[in-house]
């Protein structure tokens, strides 16, 4: 080695603060990318979150659909013991109800349908000759939901013409079911929130350990005049890669699981269950979950690195 004039490096004394990004910067943090646990942790978190969110949204749709169908439905029973009186009151009630503006649909349930309904309990016979008094039934569909005020209004309208009428909302018997569905919705929401918290914690721990094993590198870049922002970007980028990979795998697993579940429920063929499907906007929300995951991961990494750097001068 001979001593010559040192090479003059021109134009490189950019003393300002410039960006330091791209592959070269990322190379500062060596990571066995997909081999590490990070992408898989994120994949599992995203998959679970997707399933919980899809479940919650399906339940919401189910409840909304069922409630919408049933909420305006009212049953009027005429409980008169005398068959002639029963028929007379039913006719009068039908006329009175037909005049009410809030009533959009009206139907006296025919005797044959009642017989069919009762057959399993009472055997095959005409209810006409039965000793058991069978009430007359009128199905009423209201414009709005069958609130207590609406029911009172119907009762008032029927009081004079059909004193033996009993007015009930059809959704009344479903109330416990709705209560249970609501509890499940809260559970799904709580699961989603907890999973997000766990994901953030996992990323935080990963960022901290990455920081620990690269502490020397960080200090070197710091001492060479690297800014906190530059160094944080390196880690953000690295964890961002992991999160994107994990998020994609997680979304695929989650989607597979919910479409399998969905086809099982669809096979039930029940009207109620059909309304429990996912709308396009729900699918959009589900597709957004991995992106939110990536954002949480990168933000956590950034804040962790910045906090550690602030402890250096």
């Amino acid at each position: 080695m001979s001593v010559k004039k040192p090479p003059v490096v021109k134009g490189n004394t950019a003393k300002g603060i410039a960006r330091f990004g791209g592959n070269r910067a990322a190379a500062l943090v060596p990571q066995a990318r997909l081999a590490g646990p990070m992408p898989w942790v994120i994949a599992i978190m995203v998959a679970l979150t997707v399933i919980a969110a899809a479940g919650g949204m399906a339940l919401t749709n189910l409840a909304r659909g069922a409630q919408g169908e049933l909420s305006g439905a009212v049953t009027v029973q005429i409980l008169a013991a005398q068959p002639q009186e029963k028929v007379r009151q039913a006719d009068l009630a039908e006329k009175a109800l037909a005049e009410l503006p809030q009533v959009t649909g009206l139907r006296i349930v025919p005797q044959s349908e009642l017989d069919e309904l009762l057959e399993p309990w009472l055997g095959k016979s005409s209810s006409g000759d039965l000793a058991v008094p069978i009430p007359a039934l009128i199905d009423v569909q209201l414009r709005s939901s069958a609130s207590e005020e609406q029911l009172s209004a119907l009762r008032a309208a029927l009081a004079s013409v059909a004193p033996d009428a009993r007015v009930d909302a059809q959704s009344g018997w479903l109330q416990p079911v709705f209560g249970a569905i609501e509890a499940l919705q809260w559970l799904a929401l709580a699961l989603v929130v907890m999973l997000a918290a766990i994901s953030a914690t996992a990323v935080w721990l990963a960022a901290r350990s990455a920081l620990g094993s690269n502490r020397d590198t960080i200090e070197i870049v710091h001492l060479l005049g690297g800014t906190d922002g530059q160094i944080a970007r390196i880690f953000q980028r690295s964890i961002g890669f992991d999160a994107v990979a994990g998020g994609a795998v997680g979304l695929a697993i989650g989607m597979l699981a919910i479409s399998l579940l969905g086809s099982r429920f669809a096979a039930l063929g029940s009207g109620l269950m059909a309304s429990g499907g996912l709308r396009p906007i729900d699918w959009l929300a589900i597709a957004a979950i991995p992106f939110i995951g990536v954002a949480i991961a990168m933000l956590t990494a950034r804040l962790t690195v910045l906090a550690a750097l602030r402890r250096m001068l």
């Binding site: 490096v9 134009g11 490189n12 004394t13 950019a14 003393k15 300002g16 603060i17 410039a18 960006r19 330091f20 070269r24 910067a25 190379a27 500062l28 060596p30 020397d216 590198t217 070197i220 870049v221 060479l224 005049g225 690297g226 530059q230």
Partner: peptide, 19 residues
């Protein structure tokens, strides 16, 4: 920096400065 080559180590200050 242990995982960077001699070349990349020498280039580091220039990269940090945004050259």
């Amino acid at each position: 920096v242990p995982h960077l080559s001699a070349y990349d180590n020498v280039a580091l200050p220039l990269r940090v400065s945004g050259v």
